[in-house]
Write a protein that binds this DNA or RNA. Structure first.
Lengths: 249, 249
DNA sequence: CGTTCGCTTGACGTCTCTCAATGCGGGTGG
DNA sequence: CCACCCGCATTGAGAGACGTCAAGCGAACG
């Protein structure tokens, strides 16, 4: 690194570069984005539905999720975010946030002002593309989630989500030998999977007696990846870990 | 218009400009995109999951939807697209298509090569932003769909979808007095809403006896918008019809 | 004119929800 | 340091929404 001080954006740069190599000037432009690291308590709302946010955030530590609440009061978690994920590039262009962003437990997020994001994207097309690509992957994950909830039963849904979280955490070095910290309550999982916490409890209980997973406090371990993958029909293509196609511009 | 010949991209430009005004140079750049109009039969797959497409498409006529199939064979429709929608800006950056794009009935779509899209986006930041914004709205609709399917019962889901389609069609002048052509079978609706066609049939039947909607062949009419909106908890904020925030670059 | 596709309706099964109660662990205040 | 409380996990019993299986019917189409 050329910069002396460690930069909070670096995890994002690392993620981006597993897809498309950036020039030194582009990396530097990203590092020069104004940024403020914020530590939050559990259940902190970073962006509230209906707000007009002026900053975007990137996860530095912990887990963050997006949520919407129906008029009836039922909550749906739309997606989870792990360190290195830029959570709300959406609000860069939207006037009003269409959903809430919340931390699961203690977390750290980096706040970056919208104008800076847009200016950098306009100045460096490769960065603009990188941001765009990131939101596209996000949408792809959303589509798979939709398939999961719309067309699989609770058992398959749960298996699928566990596989996805494990894989995404492994990518950033937070899952070893199938073990990872899962800072979510069963109610969170239920809200993400479109079922009741009671039902999730029974599904997880069955997974445990079947020796597919183990859970000890906040640590979860996948004991039988193959079986869980099959139950959840998990195929990671939709995560687009490969990166974008080769560009000839 | 400055160009003598009607351009197939014009509906997209019109849509874009309800959000952010473009300069004449930018409009012209969009019109100069290489394009090929294709007329398709019903149930034509434009892009197949797993393919490596080289073109993106925009809907010119009819209705197009995105779909994924689970290993178990169950199909989920992720989203519908009406004239003026750029359906698969995703594939511009993705190597492999993560889902299938299909026409409901006879339709017309405009095909545009990916390199041209990327080149224009890189050259004109406002156009790059417009593309990005379009995919962000797409993701926002996806999130609302997820809430719909995850946290509402079949009756509410159906009402919500009908409201959304009516509103989006009205925006492009294809819905008058609550009447619009709905080129979807009950099986399509079921696959979009995560239920069985039989159940959708009963829900629609109830809507009809309650005088909330009327259906005559392919024409659907919303007779009681207020009631349907309330049943479906429909709030169009997520469609971001307002456009992006005012930019100060 | 037969065939296929889509709509409709009935009976029955089941996955998941609701209601309800218990227990556990961690945080808080006296 | 202990009592108390609250959030979360767990388990049981009964109810309901939705799925499955099955059959009939009309319209479009070759």
């Amino acid at each position: 690194m050329h910069t002396a001080i460690a930069n909070h954006i670096d995890p994002f740069i690392t993620k981006i570069e597993t897809r498309e190599k950036l020039s030194e000037a582009e990396r530097e432009a990203l590092r020069l984005l104004p940024q403020k690291l914020i530590h939050t308590a559990a259940r902190t709302r970073i962006v509230e539905e209906g707000e007009r946010p002026t900053h975007s955030c990137m996860v530095a530590e912990g887990m963050v999720y997006r949520t919407k609440i129906a008029e009836s009061g039922r909550r749906q978690i739309m997606s989870f975010h792990v360190p290195g994920d830029f959570v709300d590039l959406h609000t860069v262009l939207f006037k009003v946030a269409d959903h809430t962003i919340e931390t699961a437990r203690n977390a750290a997020v980096v706040m970056v002002p919208h104008e800076a994001v847009l200016k950098t994207a306009a100045e460096y097309p490769a960065i603009g593309r990188a941001f765009w690509f990131d939101t596209l992957v996000d949408a792809s994950i959303l589509r798979e989630t939709l398939l999961n909830i719309g067309r699989r039963d609770a058992r398959a849904r749960t298996a699928h989500l566990l596989c996805e979280i494990a894989l995404r955490l492994r990518r950033v070095g937070l899952c070893r030998n199938g073990s990872f910290e899962l800072p979510l309550t069963q109610t969170d999982l239920a809200d993400a999977l479109g079922v009741t916490p009671i039902h999730i409890n029974r599904v997880l209980g069955k997974f445990r007696t079947e020796r597919l997973i183990a859970m000890d406090g906040r640590m979860a371990t996948i004991l039988n990846w193959g079986a869980l993958r099959d139950i959840g029909e998990f195929d990671p293509t939709y995560l687009h870990l490969e990166g974008p196609k080769d560009l000839h511009l």
